[in-house]
Design a protein around this nucleic acid. Sequence first.
RNA 1: GGCGACAUCGCCAAGUGGUAAGGCAAGGGUCUGCAAAAUCCUCAUUCCCCGGUUCGAAUCCGGGUGUCGCCUCCA
Length: 469
Amino acid sequence: MIKIYNTLNQKKEDFKPTFPDRVSMYVCGPTTYDYFHVGNGRAFLFFDVVRRFFQYAGYKVLYVQNITDIDDKIIRKANAEKVQIAEITKKYIKAFKEDIKALGIKNATYFPKATEYVGKMIEFIKSLEDNGYAYHSEGDVFFSVEQIHDYGTLSRKKLDDLVAGARVAENTAKKAAADFVLWKKAKQGEPAWDSPWGKGRPGWHTECVVMANYLLSKENKKSDSATKVFDIHAGGVDLVFPHHENEIAQAKAGYNSHLANYWMHNGFINIEGEKMSKSLDNFLTIRNILKEYDPEAIRYFYLSKHYRSPIDFNEQIIKESTTAVNKLTRPLKDYLQKEKQLPVRAKIDPQVKKDFDTAMKDDFNTAKALAVLFELAKEINISPQPVDDKVATLYKLGSVLGFFSNVDQKESQEDNGETTQQLINLLIEYRNKFKREKNYVYADMIREDLANLGFILKDTKDGTVVEKT
RNA sequence: GGCGACAUCGCCAAGUGGUAAGGCAAGGGUCUGCAAAAUCCUCAUUCCCCGGUUCGAAUCCGGGUGUCGCCUCCA
């Protein structure tokens, strides 16, 4: 039984999907006004690992990740650059997809864009208004939080405290401080859609509710089943309040559903001990980090700590992660070097699988799961042979965590091309001849020149091997 | 002010009642012409402090100290 920490009840619960063989997940995606940063990356990557684990555990997974392509920040950026917002969003949606791919994150089943659902959002907001959950004021439409008697369950907030502690600037159009905007009146020069309340655009909290509901009913038709809730709704902790709280309020009002049965939230990432923020100018984008570090090192960094804990990102830790992940990959590369292909038909070691599964089933304890893999790697190193089963197990379980995407049959030597490989072998032969003659000047010259071309020669007990950088 | 989280080796980090996983770094070997890489071995009688419960506590309870997050757009 998989256990998941559910923010809704603040405890670990047994995971029971609505349908026995399927899991539906909705993960909050990017607002496309910039390259996404390490913090976003953690959420995107971690929940992808959750999805992979479900698939490995035998579930069919519906994975939805929204793309917010209309929003204040996007408008601001478009104005600053004097371009259409579509130009901004198009650019960063493309970048988003490139970057998740580079990180080894699989595509979602659906990537709904907010702008494609404005009509449905208007219908939804209208229905909220008709049923007394929302009110219209000077072109804006607000959700009346008081109408939801248990508002604040997710974030453990009491309405009274919210109002009392409100640091928000007084908005005179609102009836109550905690009310939130469903529809924003358009200002001069802003992109706008026609609506019953005049020109404007939807508020941020509405898109997920409407898109989740629509895509779920679409899936229901496909599979001839019916449910109003996703199994899992996920995102960063900062989304708990107000974003997810407000989504739940709307879903309760509009669909009589709490949107998802399990709410999962990942912890924050700090940079060198400080919160990432524009003012500190310490926003690190994944795109920039990838210029310098291996994507699997970043993956290791994310997965080396439990997802709900905060992590500190710094140069030292990412370098250590590079070494660590290399240690995990080494046995596979060595095996490939000798056998040319991974033992795909070998058996999975049942005890190791059990340990790995136990760790992952306990609220996705990836740090512990990694420890299981390290121990396995050591066993492979110590074992005189044969190690086929252990190598196959390492590969299989590591892949569940998203590792080893570059380690497969194609990665072995012949990938260089037959002729290239023959030429390199020839040079190795010459170098060995020079070595035997103790002509180290020439021997080292060959090694250095090949290294400059990206082929690292390593003298091992079994002879000289080549590795591409 | 309200709500919440966390404190385990030099660093990162598992462990929620049964006697301290794992990674990095470090030290010592192996291999090598030298490198590089790799690999093996060693590395916390102790878990922020003080009390308590218990046969038994890093784990539970009370108090203290410290760090951090949310309450505002934010993964």
